[in-house]
């Protein structure tokens, strides 16, 4: 095999893993919100964008260490999650049309606020990790490897949280049966606030990292939102295993298809693949009957 082919394969695999882990972080938060509050948070992409911009602002304008900037961004966006739960989602529990309207309102406000305050359209957060790892002929940037490791460790943490802690048990109870959970004395509002904070924090982490991996634009949330929806629908809305599996598929396709195809063709092919899969399995790969 030629040297360039090996390089291409390795680079593609690493790209696929990084993209998948970031997509999965976002889609996992979205699934949390859907399971626990029964809402589709279309503003998730914008939360991701806000997280990325806070990190960028802290790292460049204020000029602190990128990792500290990442933590600040996660904290701020997490607090914003509490606000969202109380004032935006709780009044419209399970009402999909109103949720869409509120989310669009939120998207309009946040995207335009960022677009006005940032005169340049495309920016990049400075690299979190510098240097290149060399193994034989293959060279990889440490940044990608670190991002992948962060993504995987966060995933494991979240899964442990859901499966091993008391709060995680409460979340699963609420997701299974709202009335039953209330009867057992579970504080539903606390659980939804917690879910919202986790979802927003994961989105902010993904956004901050992607701000350095790709680039920042005020409209970066829209494209990623389509990806998240693809993952959700493919995996089955509300299923965590589905998110992991579908996230890998979508991330891999996203890294592999652009080798042969143009950007728009990649999108169209992905849509086609997902539509065909859904026609044969209308509830997604791991989905159950939808509660709506």
């Amino acid at each position: 095999m030629a040297e360039s082919t090996i390089l291409l394969i390795v680079a593609t695999i690493v790209n696929a893993l990084v993209l998948s882990s970031m997509y999965i972080l976002l889609a996992l938060g979205f699934t949390f919100l859907f399971n626990i509050m029964g809402i589709l948070n279309f503003a998730h992409g914008v939360i991701y964008m806000i997280g990325a911009y806070i990190c960028f602002y802290m790292a460049t304008v204020v000029g602190i260490n990128q990792w500290l900037a990442l933590l600040i961004s996660v904290a701020v966006v997490g607090l914003f999650g509490i606000f969202m739960e109380r004032f935006i989602f709780r009044p419209f529990f399970g009402n999909i049309n109103s949720i869409i309207v509120v989310c669009i309102g939120l998207i309009t406000v946040l995207v335009n606020a960022v677009a006005i305050s940032q005169p340049y359209n495309v920016q990049v957060t400075p690299a979190f990790v510098q240097g290149i790892l060399k193994v034989g002929i293959v060279s990889l940037s440490w940044q990608r490897i670190v991002f992948f490791l962060i993504g995987v460790s966060l995933l494991i943490l979240v899964l442990l949280f859901i499966n091993k802690t008391k709060q995680g048990l409460q979340m699963r109870a609420v997701a299974q049966d709202l009335e039953g959970a209330i009867l057992q004395g579970i504080n539903v509002h606390f659980v939804s606030a917690l879910a919202c904070v986790i979802a927003c924090a994961l989105a902010a982490t993904a956004g901050s990292l992607m701000g350095s991996y790709l680039s920042l634009t005020p409209y970066m949330g829209n494209d990623i939102m389509i990806k998240v929806l693809e993952i959700l629908v493919l995996g089955g809305i509300g299923s965590i295993n589905g998110v992991l599996f579908a996230g890998l598929i979508v991330g891999t396709l996203d890294a592999v298809l652009p080798i042969w195809l143009s950007g728009t063709a990649t999108q169209a092919i992905m849509m086609l693949i997902i539509i065909v899969i859904l026609l044969f399995k209308p509830q997604g790969l791991f989905g159950k009957e939808v509660r709506a």
Partner: peptide
Amino acid sequence: RLKAFYYAMVSLFFGVGLLQA
């Protein structure tokens, strides 16, 4: 064949694909 959210999402994807076509 698709219900509720799945119909909504698949039609969204179809719309994006149609526009790209």
